[in-house]
Write a protein that binds this DNA or RNA. Sequence first.
DNA 1: AAGTCTCCCTGAGTGC
DNA 2: TGCACTCAGGGAGACT
Length: 271
Amino acid sequence: MPELPEVETVVRDLRPLLVGRELRAIRRSKQALRVKWQKGWEKAIAGKRVAGIQRRGKWIRVDLDDGSLLIVHLGMTGQLTVVAASEVVPSHTHLVFELDQPQELRFRDVRRFGSMTFYPRAEEWEVVLSGKLGPEPWDMPQEQWHQALKGTKRNLKAALLDQRLIAGVGNIYADESCFVAGLDPRRSGSSLRPKERDRLLDAILMVLTRAIECRGSTIRDYIGGSGLQGGYQGEFVAYGRTGEPCVKCGSPIQCIRLAGRSTHFCARCQK
DNA sequence: AAGTCTCCCTGAGTGC
DNA sequence: TGCACTCAGGGAGACT
């Protein structure tokens, strides 16, 4: 399940493989992704070179050399890779861009929660994005963070999953961050004291930084841009550890549902 | 208007 | 062995 660290890893992997390369013919599966592929996009993309690739939240932005954009979201099971054209095309591969060497940029997505969209002008995308994405965790102004939590009655889990509040945190890293901060994910945002709000942001930054160092977490389907798996799943202290002893106090990790998501925490350590 | 719920999708896992 | 069922979850949009 790609969240910020996984998407960052994909982008870092792809950058040396993709920047400067020409996108040639495009092949598509018949199955629709979450955003329908428009006729005309193929013609607009073919022959363009990749000028850059970057991550924003869980979104991947591929800049083409004429100022247009390819915007990718990996959803739950999306994989974006550059591989030799001779490699077997796995099932559920929905988009294939032939590159100017015998390689291909491939988008595979088993559950099809992901999307790939084309924007002729970058400004259009920036307008769309500005309405649904808060600051990157490392760029979060302290005052904005405090105000955002103070101003919501939602529980911490729901607040952390809200991309407008902070960009890039998903179910795994929300649980891990609450554990590291020692905060109960059921607490309402407005109930946090200033020091607790600071502790939570510190925990988020620490967890995400470490997860990126590990190339993200591979649960089932996630792979990086060059096909390698992540390693942070070996360092989970909360997520997926239902019934296992808390690494701090030994009492069993609980699993409840919050904000419609499975939520893992230690009822003794997280207050 | 903020907050909550439902839906989309497939494969793995479980129980009978 | 086979079938029915549940679960995983990001984001859009509907609903309260």
